[in-house]
Write a protein that binds this DNA or RNA. Structure first.
Lengths: 249, 249
DNA sequence: CTGCATCCGCCTCGATACTG
DNA sequence: CAGTATCGAGGCGGATGCAG
């Protein structure tokens, strides 16, 4: 075997250099030579990852972003979008040729954030609390929740699809081969259809309410093959056995 | 097939409620009923995810965290740690029974952040720039980088291990069966040993420098089976063909 | 009306000093 | 060593103004 020797170069580790640092654009940055720190230099400011979340579900107008991010303030949204565009995460697209700047959408680089964002969303599901009066809920967040909940190890062994109606949003899970994907819009011939409101949807996804309880409460409607319902719940890691106690958080 | 009907309940979506909101502990929060927003209510403040990064590589003392997070300031670190402890992401551990509170470590909940954090770190690798004079580098960040770079689809078909010496840090990748894991400390009998400094290690990981170039520059030393070196580079998504141009960022 | 820019009060952040 | 106390600077949140 091989004996290790120190390399010819000595460490170039930069010593502790206290004091706040600025990144290229004059912004505040971590100045750590590390992938995570670099990612947070771009995504770590307040609201930024929530902007990315919105754009992960398709292009959005400035006003739509404002409406779905209550509290952000117009200057902040403009600054975040400009920053993301400058760094190649987001681009502006004109629907009409007349340069009326209609929408923002993620670039390929931005799309590559999907697994990391879904991972954070899945982790955060354990921390959603009781629905408070001041909480905002949007039905299209249910799409992200479903995408994050899909357990690749529990994909049913045959093709089918489950359709979801969350308030006005319609999307479905398509099981094809050994993969399950979340897709916007209705399914061709779903084996199950779940209909509910956005708040209940998140409560089910977070485990605060079981599908069983939600049905009893009249807040969730399940139609189609009962076996498909069970497979769908299993795919999403939802309780199907009984009532299941609400975890004490 | 099934025809969809609106559920008995109407949407309980909370309307736009402008104004800054506070979360439980009196802190500023997003107040969105969504997994990602909940995650960011805990992890989204400045420095928090970098604290988690440090703890992902094992327990750390307060002073060690301070030293590896230049610029954080003592009050911020104390506040972040207290907040994470309160929310069950981190716990304090006593090495001695004498309650001298020696270290912080992640709870199981905190450990579940690993895939999301690694995902962000991998994404951010494309954004690490030229090494600047004010940049901090730490050799143990190389461990995280390697963990993030492992491509599960490119695991060699037989068991072996690759050892890395990054400044004073020693860790290895263990390929067993069809999985590859990054493990702290030396390997039993590595088929390859790479020795380098922390800055070069990150530059290689980010694609700014190829292993080939680094060897020529005398900043990287590779020992052991040449075939193993190629397999290791392939596993980590590193260029082995030739010099490969440095991407323009 | 949409898509920002400007201004202002406040709270978080970053640095230093200080204490058990 | 492990934090707490304090204070100035600046990022953030909210209201308003304005151009296309």
């Amino acid at each position: 075997m091989i004996v290790v020797a120190r390399p010819g170069i000595d460490t170039e580790t930069i010593r502790y250099d206290s004091g706040m640092q600025k990144v290229a654009g004059g912004k505040r940055g971590y100045h750590q030579y590390c992938g995570l720190a670099s990612a947070l230099d771009i995504l770590g400011e307040r609201w930024t990852l929530l902007v990315v979340r919105e754009l992960l579900m398709g292009p959005r107008r400035y006003s739509e972003l404002l409406a779905d991010l209550p509290g952000i303030g117009t200057n902040l949204l403009a600054e975040r979008l400009k920053f993301l565009v400058e760094h190649g995460v987001v681009r502006q697209i004109d629907v009409r040729g007349t340069g009326s700047r209609l929408s923002y959408e993620l670039t390929g680089t931005g799309q590559r954030l999907r697994p990391a964002v879904l991972g954070l969303a899945q982790w955060g599901m354990d921390f959603v609390g009781e629905l408070a009066a001041e909480d905002t809920v949007r039905p299209h967040w249910g799409f992200l929740a479903v995408e994050a909940m899909i357990d690749p190890a529990r994909v049913p062994p045959f093709d089918e699809s489950y359709e979801f109606h969350v308030d006005s949003e319609v999307f479905h899970i398509a099981v094809t081969g050994d993969t399950a994907r979340a897709i916007r819009g209705p399914a061709a011939s779903p084996t199950m259809i779940a209909t509910t409101d956005a708040a209940t949807f998140v409560q089910i996804g977070s485990g605060r309410v079981t599908p069983f309880i939600a049905v009893i409460q009249g807040k969730l409607k399940l139609e189609g093959d009962a076996e498909a319902v069970v497979r769908c719940c299993d795919l999403l890691g939802l309780e199907t056995t009984a009532t299941a106690p609400v975890p004490p958080r």
